[in-house]
Design a protein around this nucleic acid. Structure first.
Length: 809
RNA sequence: GCUGGUGUGGCGAAAUGGCAGACGCACGGGACUCAAAAUCCCGCGAGGGCAACUUCAUGUGGGUUCGACUCCCACCACCAGCACCA
């Protein structure tokens, strides 16, 4: 294969675009705005990989179409530059994170330019720069002022390998998201964001946004709203009370014991002297369990008796109080009422500890097996006998309310967002600890709290900043006495939770962003990124946006109006591409061989954008060939002399109109593969027409120009060049997107199918848009149809315009 | 376990409930050529038939409908998210 696409065209146009500032973003334009955003990247050391190309090139094509459709498209680029890899690299090599990050960014910038995207580099942001993280700290301070950032001693997920605390979201499954080391439990004093305050609104807002259902479901599950009841148990011999949360208050009369989480504060108070030793031993055992072991569903139930008894709020029966690690301190109230007859966990526990099992719900089908966890009819429940589970829930809650012993309530699985990291390469938390004043936020005027350059990166479990005296020792902004700085840094997800705002006003030194600008351009109209961020970045950003909105800094409730997840391009073996599997494929190689336009078009053609798939370059030669055919079409036109032939070729006209229609619709939906298929058809149609001698010059000119515009988003360098050769001096991307005439999307005659009882029996050509009567007539006249209907009674004839006729006999 | 998603030729894949397999790859045949490459044309789900044609086909089994890849129910397989969440 020796095409021939001249790659110097790419270089030529990249240079010209830069010189002419073709992609200069004008925030004052009065065209309608379109904010197109791809999730920014972490600046890793290697060159742009397939995933980057996939994530950035095709959305750029989409953006180019939008631009041609008359929108003022804002499509920025930048780097999520803080984070662990750079620091781990520093520990290994001694190269400072700032230096390695800077170098990596430079490499990636060069590479991104190769892509030929419409970025305006004046709007680039790098989250590790003071100019940016100063305002990340500002976001922290605002949340703090609003009571949404707080410090507490908490059991945290700790990764012994990365030597840092992890957010709940980064430790799911009991493993460190990054290195898959088993996460340990530690008690540390940490900063949290109160995302739980927004649980309901985060759930509610999902209704109004155009996001994939899958993603909404992940967030919904993660927030985990659950409605039920709070029930209060008195404790024998104590003033304290035990509050439990249950979704099955209908089973209240079946409670035979109560279980507290081992960490529950009541445990110390209520444990009897005789049981102290057992209880303490159990608590120690639990503490040493890894997250994985503790949450394993197959592990046998364990626990200890506290010696205390709780008093049932309705029956006044005294039931024993246990502790067990199957009750989680962080969910609900950290205590449950145990109904072994109707809950599998309680059942297993009761069996192990020889506790009473009392059936209070009858299985409607008469089955006596326990545990029975579905709804049914109440028995052994005194005044509630005979009620359905549903009715009983209402009645029992009412009864509890009247006694002040319970109420309807809602809980969420969502936990507060842990933002402290015992790491160097992040934005310092802008707080000092003063001997007199306690926790003092650094005033806005003193931001940024600068990250010092000279630190020792040895991993100790504490932030390297902890050992940096010049950083730690400071004076209190309030009383000017001696104070120490917080040495933890912010989770990088804090940086990325508001970057879409800074993009719009990246060099503002007075404020994080100008509301006049963000009001004009927010929300993001189309956000493109991986689904792996569904329960993290995408949730955090929504939270931060809502909080900023509540404080009046931004308008609206949701930052990302419409979201698309790009699929993943896997290695040829169907596994995720990774260096260790040796299945990575370099984009560079292909770009060097075929040029970036061919490569981009191939990516668009070979895979579904939202699904991705295993890498294969089987079709790339076909795209190369496609470019060749395109070249020929334009060559033919350049050689065509103006003529006075007046014959309009209607077939070509139809081809063009229907291609414009479907390409526009498919590109809009990120269906690049079908757009390209339609463009291939149009290419063949034009080529065929050009072989014909009856050529009308102005029709062909019109056709090839529209054709160039349709191709332009996918092969920007090439079509820009063609456009110039066609005699235009302006950029093709300043031209308007072709429009079509619906009436011209159909040929004069269409082929329709004729079915008899749903089976296709014939195909006939009839005039387009024939009415039902004509369709019936044509169908019944058809010879091959006759033999199927001969002598039969026709019960019904169904006609679908331009498609088919179905005769039911 | 729970909740989703996916399942279509040899392969990548298309199909507002309306002609399944668009567009490509691979393959086969032909034209051009001394020959090859490139290019162009034709064929290409499976079975049966010289043929016109015909039967069967969208994971499996049912259902709704004049008509189902598409909607409903059950099942199987794979993938993903969550998982002792009371």
């Amino acid at each position: 294969m020796d095409f021939n696409y001249d790659k110097s065209i790419d270089d030529k146009w990249r240079k010209l675009w830069e010189e002419k500032k073709t992609y200069k973003f004008d925030k004052n334009s009065d065209k309608p705005k379109y904010y197109l955003l791809e999730m920014f990247s972490y600046p890793s050391g290697s060159k742009l990989h397939m995933g980057h190309w996939w994530n950035y090139s095709l959305p750029d094509s989409f953006g180019r179409m939008k631009r041609m459709q008359g929108y003022n498209v804002f499509q920025p680029v930048g780097f999520d530059a803080f984070g662990l890899p750079a620091e781990n690299y520093a520990i290994k090599t001694g190269i400072h994170p700032k230096d390695s990050t800077q170098k990596n960014i430079e490499t990636m910038e060069e590479q991104l330019k190769q892509l030929g995207a419409t970025y305006d580099w004046d709007y680039e942001i790098k989250t590790n720069e003071e100019e940016y993280y100063k305002w990340t700290q500002w976001v922290f301070l605002k949340l703090y002022e609003k009571g949404l950032a707080y410090r507490k001693d908490a059991p945290v997920n700790y990764c012994p390998h990365c030597q840092t605390v992890l957010a709940n979201e980064q430790a799911s499954g009991g493993e460190c998201e990054r290195c898959h080391t088993k996460v340990e439990h530690k008690h540390l004093t940490q900063w949290f964001f109160k995302i739980t305050d927004y649980a309901e609104r985060l759930l509610d807002g999902l209704k109004d946004i155009d996001w994939p259902e899958k993603t909404k479901r992940i967030q919904t599950n993660w927030i985990g709203k659950n409605t039920g009841a709070k029930v209060v148990f008195d404790i024998e011999g104590h003033d304290e009370k035990i509050e439990v949360f249950t979704t099955r208050v209908d089973t209240l009369m079946g409670v035979t014991y109560v279980v507290l989480a081992p960490e529950n504060k009541l445990v110390d108070i209520i444990t009897t002297p005789q049981q102290k030793e057992v209880v303490e031993k159990y608590r120690q055992d639990v503490l040493h369990l890894s997250e994985i072991d503790r949450t394993s569903t197959v592990r046998e139930k364990t626990g200890a008796f506290t010696g205390a008894y709780a008093i049932h709020p309705l029956t006044k029966t005294h039931v024993p109080v246990y502790i067990s690690d199957y009750v989680l301190e962080s969910y609900g109230t950290g205590a449950v009422m145990a109904v072994p007859a109707h809950d599998e966990r309680d059942y297993a526990f009761a069996n192990k500890f020889g506790l009473e099992i009392k059936r209070v719900i009858k299985n409607p089908n008469g089955d006596e097996t326990l545990p029975f966890t579905d709804a049914g009819v109440l028995v052994n429940s005194g005044e509630f006998d005979g009620l359905s589970s549903q009715d009983a829930k209402e009645k029992i809650v009412k009864k509890l309310e009247s006694k002040g012993a319970g109420e309807k309530t809602t809980t969420y699985r969502l936990r507060d967002w842990l933002v402290s990291r015992q790491r160097y390469w992040g934005a310092p938390i802008p707080v000092v600890y003063c001997e007199h004043c306690g926790i003092v936020p650094v005033p806005e005027s003193e931001l940024p709290v600068r990250l010092p350059y000279n630190v020792d990166f040895k991993p100790t479990g504490k932030s390297p900043l902890y050992y940096c005296d010049e950083f730690v020792n400071t004076t209190c902004p309030k009383c000017h006495g001696k104070a120490k700085r917080e040495t933890d840094t912010l989770d990088t997800f804090v940086c990325s939770s508001w970057y879409y705002l800074r993009y719009l006003d990246p060099h503002n030194s007075k404020m994080p962003f100008d509301k006049k600008v963000t009001d004009k351009f927010m929300p993001v109209d189309k956000y493109v990124g991986g689904v792996e961020h569904a329960a993290m970045h995408l949730l955090y950003s929504r939270f931060v946006y809502k909080a900023l909105s509540d404080m009046g800094y931004v308008s609206g409730q949701e930052p990302f109006k419409s979201l698309i997840h790009q699929g993943t391009i896997l290695g040829a073996d169907g596994q995720k591409m990774s260096k260790s599997l040796g299945n990575t494929v370099s984009a560079d190689e292909y770009v060097a061989k075929f040029g970036s336009d061919v490569f981009r078009t191939y990516l668009g053609f070979g895979f579904s954008y939202t699904e991705g798939g295993p890498w294969s370059d089987d079709g790339i030669l076909a795209i190369n060939k496609f470019f060749q055919k395109i070249a020929k079409v334009f060559e033919n036109f350049y050689n065509l002399k103006e003529n006075d032939n007046k014959n309009i070729d209607e077939e070509l006209e139809v081809w063009l109109n229907k291609t414009i229609k479907s390409v526009t619709a498919d590109m809009e939906n990120f269906q690049f593969n079908t757009s390209i298929a339609r463009l291939m058809e149009l290419t063949s149609a034009i080529a065929k027409y050009q072989q014909n001698n009856q050529i009308n010059y102005s029709q062909e000119k019109y056709t090839v120009e529209a054709y160039a515009k349709l191709l332009a988003p996918l092969m920007p360098h090439y079509m820009e060049d063609v456009w110039q050769k066609l005699g235009h001096s302006a950029s093709i991307f300043d031209e308007s997107w072709p429009t079509y005439d619906e009436a011209k999307t159909l040929t004069k005659n269409v082929e329709i199918a004729i079915q008899v009882n749903g089976q296709i029996r014939a195909r006939i050509n009839i005039p387009a848009d024939s009415g039902e009567d004509d369709m019936k007539k044509f169908a019944l006249e058809t010879e091959t149809v006759q033999k199927y209907i001969d002598g039969k009674t026709i019960r019904k004839i169904i006609c679908i315009k331009n498609r088919l006729v179905n005769i039911v006999i």
